[in-house]
Design a protein around this nucleic acid. Structure first.
Length: 803
RNA sequence: UGGCCCGUCGUCUAAUGGCAGGACACCGGUCUUUGGAACCGGCGGUGGUGGUUCGAGUCCACCCGGGCCAACCA
């Protein structure tokens, strides 16, 4: 196992951890500080768990810390009630913020001070335009905004007005504080964003101390900076906000090391919704029983349902994190839950839809105590309970069939089945009521088939669970299923038309209550929070809200995997399986959304003056149209090309070298440039020309050339000198190459065989080995040719020999 | 539509110019006193077209597809 904390083993880790690895390697921070910054205006859901896990988990991994910070900058929507609920959810997931519990509201004083500083620096102004006017003057994505009348207000006046705002001299909406950035910025957020607004509202934490409240963009970066957060993770939709985040911190003089924002993709889950708005509609609309309705994806609901927090952690760990939103199949979640529970939950018997069985050959009054292990052979946990067995018991109605489908392995008239941990019984008669419904089964038992006794090895096709009629405990069982009947309710609504909403796709069977269920008596004495597997049915626990001393209520956490019902062969909906839902449970992959086969497309036409320039580049340097256009659009690079062509050593200067130079400028230069203006690079066109000439003359390979370029970009210098210093001259001596090739092939005889077997991709592997062994100096074209010959030649030899 | 971002098996995710790998799902098998679990095997992918390179999922260009931004929300 590679050391997960070692920066040198970044490969394979997610991009956030790679960023931290990089920063640590560069010595940028003393330690890692992250934060989880919920707004206390609603309940946390499973998507937040990803963020919690990332922030707290990463901090833990790097020996740093994670702050829990309530981003409470909007007094109108936030409530103390949510603060407590969120804390409970985070704790439930197993994380601890220690003393690092913060509120944005605690920084309002400092934030106010920074705002005055911005005003004094001429970077913010008080605007008297109303909301509509501000929106109007901000322009659109295609048109720049126009400055409002207050934009050039003098500093002193801004200061006075801003203090007036703070002191409550104005009504809501009368004034706002705006950053003075750029009304024409392509990023709409940079068009003089609002920093403060007036709200005469009581804040859940600061009460009536303030009547101006900071906006998210202004507040969040300052919160991070004040807390000395190093890595500020948020979701993708905040990408555009990063520019403003940096602007504010830079303008306020926060110097490195300071926080930086990185965005990751959200994880959406099929068959549910997580947006606050939609959750609210479900709850307010009474479509679910509350925020903790076990069908909801809120953490409080998942907790009530019985999902172990470890399963959520495992789930998100398995899903991973990337820079794109993900829509995850619920199957992945269900797997994580089952995987966790399978290893820990004791097995017990419960019958959800009871059918009475009478053993007609059972000695009246006799009872036999059966010892039933809590765990199957493959779960390394100990323990057992006793279940009393006598002549009357209940089995699952779905475990009996008078008209069994092919492959049915349970009880049929005249057939045998094993009672788990009991004996084999045979069905002799089905007793019916007046309506013809089977109400009771008369069976006989085989006294030589008791579990654990001699003769018990006899095999019958099926084994079913059961409960004793006299001792079984009545209970209510709630079977939860996915809330929606389609994977993406929003998309389904959009596809259906304007009138449709996500609510049209609620699954009518998302909750099924079994009032007449029976559970074995052993569970009565167990701790309430015990999680069980009801054998052959699913994982359950007692509902923490409705279960009480006088009433046993179980929630189904998740079903068992069930290949029988999945086949659609199972008929018994009555056994609590998902049989009847059959085919649509596993939606067939939708049609592949293949883009249309490409047409050449319409290339954007170059403006005339650039076209002239491009034409000239084609003529002078023999460039392709495409390359010429790239350079024609880029004044900086085309001038660089011209100067480099001028500097190219005399013999060889011409169209051919022009093409080579253009290739380097277009393909290699951007890699090493690191955002710098070309004139600020520590080397110039002449050095590039010298470098390209060395490659053209085949003194060095192109990969060595790239290496030289990297050095040039880092520290400047003279190409030929760098080549000498690094000893990059090409290795073109056939004997030496032959020697290296032999050692490469000898080192991996298996791969040689595979290559000859047709796996030609291995050529790249061999080349890589060869390059590594020659320090990148081998002439690649020559080496590749020789390598191919060798691989082919020897195989021909072998073939000849073998044949 | 201007800007920014993202396209790898059905889904999620690795490969940091050098063997396209893993997980879930699916299919088949072994085992089984849970139609569970476990184990073995199989199916299956770089959106497209050009270019750079000895070598491209990775770099460049264009096209196609998707997401975000025009709240005094976060």
């Amino acid at each position: 196992m590679p050391d997960r904390r070692s920066p040198s083993s970044s490969a394979g880790r997610d991009f956030l951890r790679q960023i931290i690895d990089r920063d640590i390697a560069a010595g940028r921070y003393d330690g890692v500080i992250t934060r989880f910054p919920p707004e206390p205006n609603g309940y946390l859901h499973i998507g937040h768990a990803k963020s919690i896990l990332l922030n707290f988990g990463i901090a833990e991994e790097y020996g740093g810390r994670c702050h829990l910070r309530f981003d409470d900058t909007n007094p109108e929507t936030e409530e103390a009630e949510f603060v407590e609920a969120i804390k409970e959810d985070v704790r439930w997931l197993g994380f601890d913020w220690g003393e690092h519990l913060y509120h944005a509201a605690d920084y309002f004083g400092q934030m106010y001070g920074f705002a005055e500083q911005l005003i004094r620096n001429g970077k913010a102004y008080v605007d008297s335009q109303d909301e509509a006017a501000i929106r109007e003057s901000r322009g659109t994505v295609t048109e720049p905004g126009i400055p409002g009348p207050d934009r050039e207000r003098p500093v002193e006046e801004n200061l006075a007005l801003f203090r007036g705002m703070r002191d409550g001299a104005f009504a809501e909406g009368e004034y706002v504080l705006r950053a003075k950035i750029d009304l024409a910025a392509p990023n709409m957020l940079m068009r003089d964003p609002i920093l403060y607004r007036i709200r005469h509202a009581s804040h859940h934490r600061s009460g009536d101390e303030w009547c101006i409240y900071p906006m998210y963009d202004y507040a969040h970066c300052l919160e991070d900076a004040i807390e000395k957060v190093t890595h500020s993770f948020c979701t993708l939709e905040f990408e555009n906000n990063r520019e403003l985040y940096d602007w504010i911190l830079d303008e306020l003089g926060f110097e490195e090391p300071r926080p930086h924002q990185y965005e990751f993709g959200k994880g959406l889950i099929n068959y549910t919704v997580t947006s606050k708005r939609k959750l609210l509609r479900l709850v307010r609309g009474g479509l679910v029983a509350g925020w903790d309705d076990p069908r909801l994806p809120t953490l409080t609901a998942l907790r009530r349902r019985g999902v172990p927090p470890e399963a959520l952690l495992a789930f998100w760990g398995r899903v991973g994190v990337a820079r794109a939103d993900a829509r995850i199949d619920v199957g992945t979640l269900e797997f994580a839950i089952r995987d966790e529970l399978n290893r820990k939950a004791p097995r017990v018997f419960a019958v959800l839809d009871p059918l009475k069985v009478v053993l007609t050959d059972w000695e009246p009054g006799r009872t036999r105590d059966l010892d039933a292990p809590y765990f199957p052979h493959d779960v390394p946990l100990e323990g057992s309970r006793t279940i009393p067995f006598s002549g009357e018991l209940f089995i699952e109605r779905g475990d009996f069939s008078e008209d069994p489908p092919p492959g049915f392995k349970r009880l049929v008239p005249g057939g045998e089945v094993r009672l788990r941990y009991g004996c084999i019984i045979r069905c002799v008669r089905a007793v019916r009521d007046r309506k013809g419904r089977v109400v009771e089964l008369h069976c006989t038992h085989n006294p030589d088939s008791w579990h654990g006794e001699l003769g018990s090895g006899r095999r019958v096709p099926g084994t079913i669970h059961w409960v004793p009629a006299a001792e079984a405990v009545p209970c209510e069982v709630r079977l939860y299923d996915r809330l929606f009947s389609v994977p993406d309710p929003d998309a389904a609504a959009a596809a259906r038309g304007e009138e449709s909403t996500f609510l049209d796709f609620l699954n009518p069977d998302s909750l099924e209550v079994r009032e007449g269920a029976l559970v074995e008596p052993s569970v009565v004495g167990d701790p309430r929070e015990s999680r069980y597997q009801f054998e052959r049915t699913g994982y359950f626990w007692r509902d923490p809200v409705d279960d009480s001393a006088g009433r046993l209520v179980f929630n189904r956490i998740v079903t068992l995997r069930d290949v029988w019902s999945r086949r659609g062969a199972g008929l018994g909906k009555g056994d609590g399986s998902r049989a009847a839902e059959g085919a649509d449970r596993q939606p067939r992959p939708q049609e592949r959304r293949r883009p249309e086969p490409t047409s050449p497309g319409t290339r954007r036409r170059l403006p005339d003056e650039l076209q002239v320039r491009a034409d000239e580049l084609v003529r002078r340097f023999g460039l392709t149209e495409v390359d010429a256009e790239i350079l024609a659009r880029d004044d900086e690079r085309s001038r660089f090309l011209e100067a480099a062509a001028e500097a190219y050593p005399e013999p060889g200067r011409g169209p051919e070298s022009g093409v080579a130079l253009a290739n380097w400028i277009i393909h290699e230069l951007p890699r090493v440039r690191d955002g710098r203006a070309l004139e600020h690079l520590p080397f110039g066109p002449a050095e590039l020309a010298g470098l390209v000439a060395l490659v053209d003359q085949e003194a060095i390979s192109s990969s060595a050339g790239a290496e030289v370029l990297a050095v040039l970009a880092r520290e400047g210098g003279e190409p030929a000198e760098i080549v000498r210093r690094l000893d990059l001259f090409q290795m073109r001596d056939a004997d030496s190459l032959e020697h290296v090739i032999s050692s490469v092939l000898a080192a991996s005889p298996g791969k040689v065989g595979q290559y000859r077997g047709g796996k030609e991709g291995l050529l790249g592997y061999f080349m890589g080995q060869l390059m590594a062994r020659t320090g990148g100096k081998a002439d690649p074209a020559l080496a590749a040719r020789m390598l191919k010959d060798r691989l082919r030649g020897e195989s021909a030899e072998e073939a000849a020999r073998d044949g």
